[in-house]
Computed example of a mutant assay.
Amino acid sequence: MLDWIEGFDAAAGIVGGIFGFSAFVVAWLTRPSRVNATKIEELQTVNAELQGRVSELEAVIANQPTRDDFHALTLKLSEMGGQISTVSTELQAVSRIAIRIDDFLLNQGGK
Rank of each mutant, 00 (worst) to 15 (best):
Q92L: 12
V26R: 08
F24I: 03
G17D: 02
D68S: 11
S55E: 15
L2W: 14
P32N: 00
D102Y: 07
P65R: 00
S95R: 10
G16D: 03
N107M: 12
Q51A: 10
E79R: 02
D103L: 05
R100W: 10
V25P: 03
I40R: 06
V26H: 02
E56H: 11
Q44I: 02
P65L: 02
N47Q: 13
R31N: 04
R96L: 12
R67L: 12
E79K: 01
N107L: 13
N63A: 09
I101N: 15
G110K: 15
E42S: 03
E90G: 07
V26Y: 03
A27Q: 06
S85T: 11
A48K: 06
A59V: 03
R53M: 06
F24T: 03
L43V: 01
A27H: 06
Q51R: 11
F104M: 09
L2E: 14
I101C: 11
A37D: 10
G20R: 00
I5F: 13
I18N: 06
Q51S: 07
G109F: 05
I97R: 15
S22M: 11
A12K: 06
L43C: 01
F24R: 04
D68R: 12
V46A: 15
S85R: 08
G13R: 00
G81F: 02
A37N: 07
E6R: 11
T38E: 14
D68E: 14
G82V: 02
Q108S: 13
T45G: 11
G82T: 08
I101Q: 14
V54P: 01
L106Q: 09
W4N: 14
L29G: 06
P65M: 04
N63K: 13
A93D: 13
R34M: 07
E6T: 09
A98V: 08
G7Q: 15
R100Y: 11
T89S: 10
G7F: 12
I99G: 09
T89P: 07
S85W: 05
T30H: 03
S22I: 08
V26I: 09
S33V: 10
Q92T: 10
V26L: 05
N63L: 04
L50Y: 01
L29I: 09
T86Y: 06
A12R: 07
G13T: 03
D9F: 10
S88E: 13
K39N: 02
A93Y: 01
V87W: 04
D68T: 09
R53V: 10
L91A: 04
A98Q: 04
S88R: 12
L91I: 07
G20E: 04
I97P: 05
L29M: 08
F21A: 12
I97W: 09
A37H: 05
L2D: 12
S88P: 02
L91P: 06
V54M: 06
V60G: 00
R31F: 01
A62M: 02
I5C: 03
G17I: 00
